[in-house]
């Protein structure tokens, strides 16, 4: 247990990095994913097509491959990022955006066609329909899956630890290697750090989900 208590500052450093990477990527992925979802529901065929190809391609690519691309391959084709953190941020954002896009899109599609037809029938404009009728309903459906996506993102930041970002997983590996006698407590400590982030978020997601069901 000494290995944990004498290295609490390292744990804290890794925890902060994991959290920071999660929040930065979540914000970027949210913006990117929403734009992609707008592409996928737009009447413009070429944008729809782009959105579909992006989502299908990214969802079927392992995250490790995406990281490998940004760390080892991108510099060869002239794409350079200032640090490993930025590479990890970009990789996680691009990967997560595909899942955000699908959640937002199915949220919009879950609103009944009759809702929008009724709105148009009473004379609301396109903007009003979107603002007053469609988006408030879509938002409710989208939030629980979005929380689940961000939980997955929190766990996915551990891949960054395999590519030179010193977040929780990397700290865990370093401490486990330097304290061979305490490998099990060290790694369980790292696991607990992840659970501190993921389990409450999971509870939040199912709570929101229940709220939304009642509201319908």
């Amino acid at each position: 247990m000494d290995a944990i208590f004498s290295n609490l500052d390292l744990y804290w450093q890794g925890f902060r990095m994991t959290l920071w990477l999660t929040l930065a990527s979540a914000a970027t992925a949210l913006v990117l994913g929403t734009i992609l979802a707008a592409f996928r529901v737009s009447p413009v065929a070429s944008l729809r097509w782009f959105g579909t190809v992006y989502v299908e391609l990214v969802r079927n690519t392992p995250l490790t491959i995406v990281f490998f691309f940004f760390i080892f391959v991108a510099p060869q084709v002239g794409i350079r990022t200032p640090s490993f953190f930025v590479s990890a941020w970009v990789a996680l954002s691009i990967y997560t955006a595909a899942f955000v896009c699908e959640a937002v899109r199915s949220g919009i599609n879950s609103v009944g066609v009759g809702q929008a037809e009724a709105a148009r029938a009473i004379g609301l404009t396109f903007t009003q329909t979107l603002q007053l009728i469609v988006l408030p309903q879509a938002f409710r459906t989208v939030v629980p899956p979005l929380i689940n996506i961000f939980i997955a993102l929190t766990k996915n930041t551990s891949v960054a630890g395999g590519f030179a970002v010193t977040e929780l997983f990397a700290i865990g590996r370093r401490l486990a290697n330097s304290n061979p006698a305490d490998v099990i407590p060290v790694l369980i400590g790292i696991g607990v750090c992840y659970l501190i982030l993921t389990i409450p978020s999971g509870i939040l997601a199912s709570w929101v989900e229940r709220k939304v069901v009642f509201a319908r």
Binding site: S158, G161, G162, F169, G172, I184, L187, Y194, L195, T198
Partner: peptide, 19 residues
């Protein structure tokens, strides 16, 4: 179920190797 759902897979692989 709840514990293993909330942990990164790569961490459990590392646990397998080292622990």
């Amino acid at each position: 179920i709840e514990i293993f759902r909330g942990l990164p897979v790569v961490l459990m692989m590392l646990f397998g190797v080292l622990a």
